[in-house]
Every structure is written in C-alpha cells, then in structure tokens.
C-alpha cells in the first residue's frame, strides 16, 4: 500500500488526461480537420493569474472569443517583466467546466515550455487551440485560465 500511494501519482495523471478531471487540457500535434458546423458558436474566455510573488505582469490580449467548434484559432497573452532581473516561469492551464477540458485541445502554447523573461522585456506569447465538435451541446461558455509560477532556476 506504500507503493500504491506512489502509484497514485501516475494513475492520477493518466486519470486526469482521460477524463479531463481537474481541468487538464489536451494537446494535438497537427492541424487535423474536424467536421465543422458553422452555425454553432461557443464563447471562450481567457483569464490570467500569477502566484507566489511572480513579478511579471501577465494577461490575455483579448478577453473572450466566439469560436466555432472544429476550427483552429490563434490568440495571445502578453507578459511584461518590470524588474531588472531575468525571470523564469511556468504557466499551468486549467479549463472550466471540467466536461469541456477533455475537448479543449492546444496545438501551440507557451505553457508547453518554461518561459524566460529578460529585464523590462515585453513579450507576446501565442496560443493556438481548437474546441472539438464532440463538446457537449449544452456547453456554451468555456473559461481558460493560466496560472504563472516562478521557477528558481
């Protein structure tokens, strides 16, 4: 059972990936094509947070977008380092509602890697995503939030 406690770590990761539990978002590697219903619209809202004394200003370029499920969209977040030091950070995404997390897929995201911000540098970080048409018809709004954490090295 001691080993089981440790086994829960990978089990939990796989479980979150399969179910979208905990708002875990998915990832696609290529711009695959989906059956698109042009009439259907879903509103995606973008949020940003910083944690634990992260000294970089960080926010979405646009606060919300109307998207057609099955089509790829590009938007971006802007980060400005106001300090005299180089800051390294990692963004952790989360999608609500959880039922939507499973069908929110990212092709390109600044959260895939750690980001380095040079002193007084302002960067625009792109995000390319698709909402899959398999998304439950009852869901009309999706919130995507990023939480930036400071890394020490």
């Amino acid at each position: 059972m001691f080993a089981f406690a440790y086994a829960m770590v990978p089990i939990y990761d796989v479980f979150c990936e399969i179910t979208g539990f905990n708002g875990t978002t998915g990832r696609v590697d290529t711009e695959q094509s989906y059956a698109v219903d042009e009439q259907r619209k879903v509103e995606v809202s973008f949020f940003a947070m910083t944690m634990g004394g992260f000294p970089v200003q960080f926010g979405p370029k646009v606060h919300s977008m109307m998207v057609v499920p099955g089509k790829f969209y590009t938007t971006s977040y802007i980060a400005k380092n106001n300090t005299d030091e180089t800051v390294i950070g990692q963004a952790i995404p989360s999608v609500a509602p959880t039922d939507a997390a499973l069908h929110f897929k990212k092709l390109e995201c600044f959260c895939f890697n750690r980001q380095t911000f040079k002193p007084h540098e302002e960067v625009e970080m792109t995000l390319r995503f698709v909402v899959e048409p398999e998304l439950d018809k009852r869901i009309k709004d999706i919130s995507l939030s990023y939480n930036f954490f400071k890394l020490d090295s």
Binding site: M1, A5, I92
Partner: peptide, 30 residues
C-alpha cells in the same frame, strides 16, 4: 490505510527537502 499515509508524508518530506514536486504545480505536480 496506514502505509498510504506514510507514502503521503514521505512525498511531503521529499517535496520539502529534496526538490521533488509531487504536490507542487510549478514542477508538474498537483
């Protein structure tokens, strides 16, 4: 049940002192 508790506090111990990130979102934990 008790070994699971032992596992939880051991993860805490390594998170606190040995740089693991079981429960630290920055390092990919949760």
């Amino acid at each position: 049940a008790m070994p699971v508790l032992a596992g939880a506090v051991t993860m805490m111990l390594t998170d606190r002192n040995f740089g693991t990130a079981f429960f630290d979102a920055t390092g990919g934990g949760d």
